[in-house]
Amino acid sequence: MLEFQFASLTAFFEMAPHGIYVWPIYGLGVLVLGGLTFANARQHRRAVRMIQRNLEREETHES
Protein backbone atom coordinates (compact mmCIF):
# COMPACT_ATOMS: atom_id res chain seq x y z
CA MET A 1 0.00 0.00 0.00
CA LEU A 2 1.37 3.41 -0.96
CA GLU A 3 1.58 5.84 1.91
CA PHE A 4 2.96 9.33 2.33
CA GLN A 5 6.23 8.69 4.19
CA PHE A 6 6.42 11.94 6.15
CA ALA A 7 4.58 13.20 9.22
CA SER A 8 3.84 16.59 7.62
CA LEU A 9 4.51 18.68 4.52
CA THR A 10 7.23 20.54 6.44
CA ALA A 11 8.93 17.23 7.23
CA PHE A 12 8.61 16.30 3.55
CA PHE A 13 10.41 19.46 2.42
CA GLU A 14 13.02 19.16 5.17
CA MET A 15 13.67 15.43 4.51
CA ALA A 16 15.72 15.67 7.67
CA PRO A 17 18.62 15.96 7.39
CA HIS A 18 18.96 15.53 3.62
CA GLY A 19 16.51 18.00 2.06
CA ILE A 20 19.42 20.36 1.37
CA TYR A 21 20.94 17.71 -0.92
CA VAL A 22 17.79 16.25 -2.48
CA TRP A 23 15.72 19.31 -3.50
CA PRO A 24 18.44 21.31 -5.33
CA ILE A 25 19.16 18.24 -7.49
CA TYR A 26 15.51 17.89 -8.51
CA GLY A 27 15.43 21.65 -9.14
CA LEU A 28 18.48 21.30 -11.38
CA GLY A 29 16.81 18.40 -13.20
CA VAL A 30 13.73 20.54 -13.95
CA LEU A 31 16.02 23.40 -15.03
CA VAL A 32 17.98 21.17 -17.44
CA LEU A 33 14.86 19.63 -19.02
CA GLY A 34 13.12 23.02 -19.22
CA GLY A 35 16.25 24.75 -20.53
CA LEU A 36 16.79 22.20 -23.30
CA THR A 37 13.10 22.41 -24.31
CA PHE A 38 13.35 26.22 -24.43
CA ALA A 39 16.65 26.10 -26.38
CA ASN A 40 15.10 23.74 -28.97
CA ALA A 41 12.06 25.97 -29.45
CA ARG A 42 14.31 29.04 -29.82
CA GLN A 43 16.56 27.27 -32.35
CA HIS A 44 13.49 26.26 -34.38
CA ARG A 45 12.05 29.80 -34.31
CA ARG A 46 15.43 31.23 -35.33
CA ALA A 47 15.68 28.82 -38.27
CA VAL A 48 12.18 29.73 -39.48
CA ARG A 49 12.93 33.48 -39.18
CA MET A 50 16.23 33.05 -41.07
CA ILE A 51 14.49 31.24 -43.94
CA GLN A 52 11.69 33.83 -44.01
CA ARG A 53 14.27 36.66 -44.23
CA ASN A 54 16.05 34.87 -47.10
CA LEU A 55 12.76 34.44 -48.96
CA GLU A 56 11.87 38.12 -48.47
CA ARG A 57 15.32 39.16 -49.70
CA GLU A 58 14.92 37.02 -52.81
CA GLU A 59 11.48 38.48 -53.50
CA THR A 60 12.83 42.04 -53.20
CA HIS A 61 15.65 41.17 -55.60
CA GLU A 62 13.27 39.68 -58.15
CA SER A 63 10.94 42.67 -58.05
Binding site: L2, E3, F4, Q5, F6, F12, M15, A16, P17, H18, G19, Y21, V22, I25, Y26, G29
Partner: peptide, 20 residues
Protein backbone atom coordinates in the same frame (compact mmCIF):
# COMPACT_ATOMS: atom_id res chain seq x y z
CA UNK B 1 10.27 11.50 -3.20
CA UNK B 2 7.12 11.10 -1.13
CA UNK B 3 5.80 7.53 -1.23
CA UNK B 4 8.88 5.29 -1.40
CA UNK B 5 10.09 4.17 2.05
CA UNK B 6 13.16 5.70 3.68
CA UNK B 7 16.37 3.72 3.18
CA UNK B 8 17.51 2.21 6.47
CA UNK B 9 21.19 3.05 5.83
CA UNK B 10 21.20 6.19 3.68
CA UNK B 11 18.08 7.89 5.03
CA UNK B 12 16.37 10.32 2.64
CA UNK B 13 19.53 11.13 0.66
CA UNK B 14 18.96 7.97 -1.38
CA UNK B 15 15.96 9.69 -3.04
CA UNK B 16 18.51 11.36 -5.34
CA UNK B 17 18.80 7.99 -7.14
CA UNK B 18 15.38 8.60 -8.75
CA UNK B 19 17.14 11.24 -10.84
CA UNK B 20 20.76 10.09 -10.74
Amino acid sequence: LALAPVDYQQGNSYRIIYLH
